[in-house]
């Protein structure tokens, strides 16, 4: 009986040992494979994970409290989040007072004036492109005249512009809306003519140059 019991105990121990061996070997194979995989593909994995996480935006948490400007480099520090308000556009001569959003997709242009994300910001000494619909926010853009004051009240400063030119261009004429750095030009455009029906093939553009910049912090609405 004792011998049989000893044999059973030995048999049970060897089975447990066998199972433990197989688990250890599989675990070793798995960690080896994962190490080699991460060593060879880590850059690509990180790249794709970053892309996915950039697209995971909790919009409710987006805020522009840290938007500021480096006055020496003439560059924005912490750009406003896409789709958020960063300024108000004020043109007293035509009673215009509307918010300006970062971005100019159609969703934004239903709510306010869109700032083309590929253009510079006020204070960066470059071209600024603003767009809005001609029967909503830029209804009276055609009535802006030379010497009118155009004010961009941003969250980091107030900028005043004066119009110097007005043009009617083709909707596809990108050369008429150049994005350059070196001189701060504000270009505001909308559909043309005022009574256009359907998809307007022309745009009305008001070109203005910077005449005054005031960098005290302004609270946005």
């Amino acid at each position: 009986m004792q011998i049989r019991s000893e044999r059973q105990t030995t048999s049970f121990k060897s089975k447990i040992k066998g199972i433990a061996e197989r688990v250890a070997i599989s675990f070793f194979f798995a960690t080896f494979f994962i190490t080699i995989f991460l060593m060879t593909c880590k850059t690509d994995i990180d790249k794709y994970l970053n892309i996915i996480n950039i697209m995971s935006v909790d919009i409710k948490k987006a805020n522009n409290d840290k938007v500021s400007i480096d006055l020496v480099k003439k560059q924005i520090i912490n750009y406003p989040a896409y789709g958020t308000i960063y300024a108000n556009l004020i043109i007293p001569s035509i009673d215009l007072y509307y918010p300006v959003y970062h971005g100019d997709d159609l969703d934004i242009m239903m709510k306010g004036i869109g700032h083309y994300a590929g253009s510079f910001f006020p204070g960066e000494n470059g071209s600024i492109l603003l767009a809005a619909h001609n029967n909503v926010h830029f209804q009276r853009l055609y009535d802006v005249k030379l010497n009118d004051k155009i004010i961009l009240e941003t969250i980091y400063g107030t900028f005043t512009y004066e119009p110097y030119d007005f043009k009617v261009i083709d909707a596809t004429d990108e050369d008429a809306l150049p994005i350059n750095q070196g001189e701060e030009i504000l270009m505001m455009y909308t559909c043309y003519p005022r009574t256009a029906v359907g998809y307007a093939s022309k745009r009305y553009v008001v070109y203005s140059k910077l005449v005054e910049a005031n960098y005290e912090k302004v609270k946005s609405n």
Partner: peptide, 25 residues
């Protein structure tokens, strides 16, 4: 079988910790 189990379990943990799927747009 155990090798596959370890790999899939690791992948599950890694993806869950690295990707914010709920706020994806």
């Amino acid at each position: 079988l155990l090798f596959c189990a370890f790999i899939y379990f690791f992948a599950f943990i890694y993806i869950k910790c690295s990707v914010d799927i709920n706020n994806l747009i």
